[in-house]
């Protein structure tokens, strides 16, 4: 049964320095507030797993929380570069960032394998690309039935998986809908999981296309209204596209970035 906790308590009790932490939400239901709490509590040396490390990973990297990033697309969607991510890779600021880079299909299958209790997943992909050459978690495998050469990707089993969802009930059953991405697999592959939700309600009413994660599959649930802002939560609020555009300027300059974090994350509770 999932425990209902505060965000602060959830991050403090479930995360440790040096952990592998998945922060999922494929372009929707991004766990921004949880990322900010990780920054506030000053975690270090984390391996962050996220298909689309957008603004939240840029902020975690720029604040020196991340030593390794496992990812498949590292940009500011529709805007351009992630400047803190680039600065870490190109210039080692604020510290060197190790990467294990994949395609979406590949990292997706790493989560699927992790969720399935298997050491790897089999897929068609990567062949002929540089990714195959550089990633230590991609390897060729021969089909035992046909002899065909395919690709294996290693399972990922994060110490903690964090997602954001629309709602949970008081028992900790979680419900999410809209673009549901890789969130279910992220929770199921995690050794522990923390789900932040827009609201905790008495009863979960069915919603078209919803994914329900029963309470016994989730470690902890925290009520965090607006937990995906400035991204969005379908049915609750829209994506603040203007902020994504503004982030390009804020993040380009180190001092301006640090001042923004000081003002908006460290001093606040957002």
């Amino acid at each position: 049964m999932a425990e209902i906790v505060s965000l602060q308590e959830g991050i403090r009790t479930l995360l440790n320095n040096g952990d592998t932490v998945a922060l999922e939400g494929f372009t929707h239901l991004i766990p921004m507030a949880a990322g900010h709490e990780i920054i506030r509590q000053g975690f270090k040396n984390l391996t962050v797993v996220r298909l689309t490390p957008d603004l939240i990973c840029d902020q975690l990297i720029g604040m020196g929380c991340v030593s390794k990033l496992v990812f498949s697309w590292g940009g500011n969607p529709g805007v351009g570069s992630l400047h803190r991510f680039r600065d870490a890779i190109e210039n080692g600021w604020p510290s060197k960032l190790e990467i294990d880079e994949h395609s979406h299909a590949g990292l997706t299958n790493r989560f699927v394998a992790g969720a399935s209790g298997l050491p790897f997943a089999v897929m068609r992909g990567y062949k002929g690309t540089g990714l195959e050459k550089y990633s230590p978690t991609v390897a060729p495998i021969t089909c035992p039935f046909t002899g065909e050469e395919l690709v294996a990707v290693a399972a990922v089993n994060p110490d903690l998986s964090v997602i954001h969802a629309q709602r949970a009930d008081r028992k900790g059953n979680v419900q999410l809908w809209g673009i549901t991405g890789i969130q279910k697999e992220a929770v199921l592959s995690g050794k522990k999981s923390l789900v932040t939700v827009e609201e905790i309600v008495d009863e979960l009413k069915p919603h078209p296309g919803d994914v329900v994660l029963p309470s016994w599959l989730v470690t902890a649930v925290a009520e965090v209204p607006g937990g995906s802002k400035p991204s969005y939560a379908a049915g609750y609020y829209q994506r603040d596209n203007d902020f994504y555009i503004a982030w390009d300027e804020i993040s380009r300059d180190k001092d301006r970035f640090l001042a923004w974090i000081e003002q908006n994350v460290l001093k606040g509770d957002g």
């Binding site: 689309t52 990812f71 498949s72 697309w73 590292g74 940009g75 570069s81 992630l82 991510f85 680039r86 890779i89 190109e90 880079e101 994949h102 395609s103 979406h104 299909a105 590949g106 068609r124 992909g125 990567y126 690309t129 990714l131």
Partner: peptide, 14 residues
């Protein structure tokens, strides 16, 4: 040691 780090693959390889 890239001169410019671009966003990466996304769904493109497959």
């Amino acid at each position: 040691t890239p001169k410019v780090r671009l966003p990466g693959a996304g769904g493109a390889p497959e």
